Amino acid sequence: MCRTFLLVSDIHYRLDNIIKLQNWLVQKDRLKEIDYIIASGDLVNADYLTPTMEKDVQEFREVISALQNFGRPLYYIPGNHDPDTCFHQDRKDDANDEEKPIAKNLHNESAQIAPGLSIVGFGGSTNGVKRDSPETVIWPACPKDTETLLAERLPTLIDQVKDDDIILVTHFGPSKTGTTDVDMYPLQPSDAIESGSKVLRDMIASRSPLSPSESSQHYITINIHGHSHYPFGLSHVGQTMILNPGALRDGRFAILSLVQLDKNKFMEGDEERRKYMQYFSRDKIWIIERAEFFVNY
């Protein structure tokens, strides 16, 4: 069994790039293979330091509608530049009608998308700080208590997923990974920025079952995020892959395929992961089959 995802993030109201992406998928005959679209935040350019304006809400709806035109179910989370109404518990999903596919706001929610596979979402951002002096905040968290809320709510959200592997979608990534460390000039003195979350990193790391007493029903197969425009690509925390597709504002996106395999068969072919996988409580697991990164000028 296989599921393929179109991954976009940090669109920042570039509707022209959404149209270019749709045209690219059609021209390359790739749209037919896409099962779902995942958008990991910052769809528009709302000023997160001031109250949301009606213009931001309208632009957000336009982006959602444009992504729905691809004809695939859309799962999205809000970033720090999206309307604050996206974080409210009483929010409504945008632009859902019978003529268009589902558009689901996953902030603080989960959904099963295939047998044995669920998607869990959490939006917002944490403080961006100087890597060498973390007490120096470059940009503030939005909402300001995101780390506290993440620590309180995400474990419960994950525990509510029964017997499924998990795609974890966040706007920010885990700290100390290549996809969040904004160091544009590593060979020269620079003001490198750490944009990732320590809480998220610790949470992913703590869910790696390494003994029978720690046997877990939950396996975070991959954490998909955005927020950091420069360090797109793949990284990892333990055995969990971390993926940042890059900013669609700059034409970047990714296509990800996950495949479900028999656990024992997979361990036979991957000696290094046998110790890690042997205590999983299920017979089948979801892993990355293919991850492709693109830039569409």
Score class of each variant (00 low, 15 high):
Pro143Leu: 03
Thr180Phe: 00
Leu117His: 04
Lys263Arg: 09
Ser110Thr: 06
Thr136Gln: 12
His88Ser: 14
Arg91Pro: 09
Thr148Phe: 11
Ile288Asn: 06
Pro83Lys: 04
Arg290Ala: 04
His236Cys: 12
Ala192Leu: 05
Leu248Asp: 01
Asn80Val: 13
Ile11Leu: 10
Ser206Pro: 09
Leu117Ala: 07
Asp159Ser: 13
Ser40Trp: 01
Ile34Ala: 05
Asp56Ser: 10
Gly238Pro: 13
Ile38Glu: 01
Gly124Arg: 06
Gly79Leu: 04
Thr50Ala: 11
Asp94Asn: 07
Val26Met: 10
Gly269Lys: 09
Asp90Leu: 12
Ile138Arg: 01
Asp191Thr: 13
Val259Trp: 05
Gln188Val: 08
Asp145Val: 04
Gln160Lys: 12
Arg72Phe: 01
Val129Gly: 12
Leu25Thr: 14
Ile18Thr: 06
Asp164Trp: 01
Ile19Pro: 01
Phe60Leu: 10
Asp10Thr: 01
Pro189Val: 07
Asp164Val: 04
Glu194Phe: 04
Leu31Ala: 03
His227Ile: 03
Asp270Ala: 11
Tyr13Asp: 13
Leu74Thr: 08
Ile11Cys: 05
His229Val: 08
Pro83Leu: 01
Asp93Gly: 02
Gly173Phe: 00
Thr85Arg: 11
Asn105Gly: 07
Leu248Asn: 05
Ser40Met: 02
His229Ile: 02
Val137His: 02
Phe5Gln: 02
Asp93Ser: 05
Gln58Glu: 15
Ser213Thr: 07
Glu272Tyr: 13
Asp132Lys: 12
Ser235Trp: 05
Lys275Cys: 13
Pro143Ser: 03
Glu59Trp: 13
Glu214Tyr: 00
Asp165Gln: 03
Asp16Ile: 02
Ile288Arg: 00
Gly196Pro: 11
Arg72Ser: 09
Leu243Val: 14
Pro115Asn: 11
Arg274Tyr: 05
Glu268Gln: 12
Val137Gln: 03
Asp29Tyr: 02
Asp283Val: 05
Ala205Lys: 14
Gly269Asp: 12
Leu187Trp: 07
Arg14Asn: 11
Leu74Met: 11
Asn69Glu: 10
Arg91Asp: 01
Glu272Met: 10
Arg249Tyr: 15
Lys100Gln: 11
Arg61Lys: 14
Cys142Met: 13
Val63Pro: 05
Arg72Cys: 09
Lys55Gln: 15
Ser190Phe: 00
Ser190Glu: 08
Met53Phe: 13
Glu147Pro: 14
Asp29Leu: 10
Asn69Lys: 10
Asn127Ala: 10
Val44Cys: 09
Arg72Ala: 09
Phe70Ala: 09
Asn45Trp: 08
Glu99Lys: 15
Glu194Pro: 00
Ser40Ala: 11
Asp47Trp: 04
Gln89Val: 15
